[in-house]
Amino acid sequence: MREVIIIGSGPAGYTAGIYTARAGLNPLLIASSVEAGGELMKTTEVENYPGFPTGLQGPELMDAFRAQAERFGTEVLLDDVIEVDLTGAIKIVKTGGGQTFEAKTVILATGAAYRELGLPKEKELSGHGVSWCATCDGFFFREKTIAVIGGGDSAMEEANFLTRFASKVYLIHRRDTFKASKIMQERALANPKIEVVWNTEVAELLGEGKLSGIITRNTVDGSTKQLDLDGLFIAVGNDPRVWLVENQVELTAEKFIKVEGRSSKTSLPGVFACGDVIDPTYRQAITAAGSGCVAALDAEHYLADVK
């Protein structure tokens, strides 16, 4: 039996790995098979992570997190957790690769998954003009006309990044102000290839087998318009990834894992949660890392008490 199993491999999961490994708890970190490293694997330049004054690439930062966790003995498994039973004193974790693990504590750092628009044809056109990953797919839109949907930092970053390839980028947002940080907004607004379309949402996706455009709806007067596009990048936020545990641990009204006060303690003893899966507000790499540290320390204290 393990002392600690960590589920997730973003800044929260790896930081929990670093701390529990240094505490001699020999953690197993189940990182996922194809999404190891989490959201930052899909970003380019990270400029706000303290300690890196000239910035670095998201994947580079995550490789460093992983190396630091492994240096102290965190065992990283590239597999997906498909089922857990966290209700007893012995926690059971099963993976898609067919392994079953037992542990005294589990740290949930499963992060958040991108949100869909919820429109007909969205799935069918995904990968055929509709994308959630500018860094993966921007390359295919050289000299094309595309749109980014959203108003947060990731929408600004994607729009700016995509101007390296596209000839024109519409940045479509349903309100008349962005919630992105000032520096990111200013960059987007100053970029000559970006045209901001305020107070507008996507009403319909057009195209057979391949996206050809969208119908937009004005959120103020309800008027609709057709916009011909080669690509549509969706950056309308993320939802906490709780499907593994939603019937076992208590969630908040917004469907985040509920934790006690400033701690990482969930409604189940020996089960801790950290990172974006508990955070409806801040959702930064640095806050997730801090939260992973909290979970590691809480797990360490819990283990000392049950011994």
């Binding site: 098979s33 194809v34 999404e35 490293g37 694997m41 390359f139």
Partner: peptide
């Protein structure tokens, strides 16, 4: 695939 595509690097060993 491409070098700069993170998800591609994850799928390749599979």
């Amino acid at each position: 695939w491409a070098e700069w595509c993170g998800p591609c690097r994850m799928v390749s060993p599979i």
